[in-house]
């Protein structure tokens, strides 16, 4: 009996609960029996080599893609069972930061951040203006409100998109490769921002990345996925001590290991002596 309530409590502590997830694209299997939990208020990072479907995972959590099997629960709601209206209601409580920023190119910075408010609330113009300016201030771009997205650098665009993602004060924010292609300065800014936002408003953050250094700096919990499965999970300290070969290869950036440097191919000598004949 008491074990049951313990489990309930643990369940309530989880914002996202993924069980037995299968997903494939054509004949390529992306996830195979994946289990994953995200605790409320934490920064959870999902790491893995390119092409392991990290972005796909975010799309599955937000209901943009449908898995072949398994369950995905977000805040107690079964994402796969929701109809469109229910899904949209849920998404209003989530923010997502896309790799490219995904700002609407024909709207100014201010209008981009104001967009979700205009769509989903009936705020007075002055209230809306205050809110937008506050969010822009939080990402340090209040002065850039009249610029168009084409006039922003990559790092600035990502920060504007972050302001837009948090403008409705979501319970959870998903970051898709936030550090890719950033110079060290804006990378540092983003790292600080993500941590600050998470702690200031008890938001839950899911971070998908393959930048080991930055991610281990801010994450509370790490998942390492490779070939459709979780190969390691734990706090950054625990992962750092994990001695398994594949974990070490990824975390330390070794060129050869369980993931081979060479794409599968017949032996080189055989290939060279084939003299261009069609195989």
């Amino acid at each position: 009996m008491s074990g049951e309530t313990d489990r309930d409590l643990a369940d309530q502590d989880l914002l996202v609960k993924i069980r037995g997830l299968h997903f494939s694209r054509g004949s390529r299997v992306i996830f195979e029996d994946l289990d994953l939990d995200i605790r409320r208020g934490s920064v959870t990072a999902v790491m893995g080599p390119s092409g392991t479907g990290k972005t796909t995972l975010l799309k599955l959590i937000t209901g943009q893609l449908h898995p072949d099997a398994g369950t995905i629960e977000v805040d107690g709601e079964d994402v796969l069972r929701l109809d469109k209206a229910g899904l949209y209601r849920l998404r209003r409580r989530m923010g997502m930061l896309f790799q490219s920023g995904a700002l609407l190119t024909d709207l100014s910075v201010f209008e981009n951040v104001a967009y979700p408010l205009r769509e989903h609330t009936d705020l007075s113009p002055s209230m809306l203006r205050k809110l937008v300016l506050l969010k822009l201030e939080a990402v340090g771009l209040r002065g850039a409100r009249d610029l168009m997205p084409s006039e922003l650098s990559g790092g600035m665009a990502r920060r504007v998109a972050l302001a837009r993602a948090i403008v409705l004060d979501p319970m959870m924010i998903l970051y898709d490769e936030p550090f890719t292609g950033q110079d060290p300065i804006s990378m540092g800014m983003l790292v600080t921002l993500i941590r600050q936002l998470n702690d200031a408003s008890r938001m839950t953050s899911i971070l998908v990345s393959h930048d080991v250094r930055e991610t281990t700096r801010i994450a509370d919990f790490l998942y390492l996925i490779s070939q459709g499965r979780v190969i390691a999970q734990g706090t950054p300290q625990e992962i750092a001590l994990d001695a398994s070969e594949s974990v070490r290869q990824f975390m330390d950036g070794l060129p050869d290991g369980p993931v081979h440097f060479h794409y599968p191919a017949p032996p080189l000598a055989e290939d060279l002596s084939a003299q261009g004949r069609k195989r």
């Binding site: 937000t62 943009q64 209601r89 998404r91 209003r92 896309f98 995904a102 609407l104 769509e119 989903h120």
Partner: peptide, 9 residues
């Protein structure tokens, strides 16, 4: 996709 995520169809 960004619009979708903002719950805008």
């Amino acid at each position: 996709a960004g619009l979708e995520m903002m719950a805008v169809d």
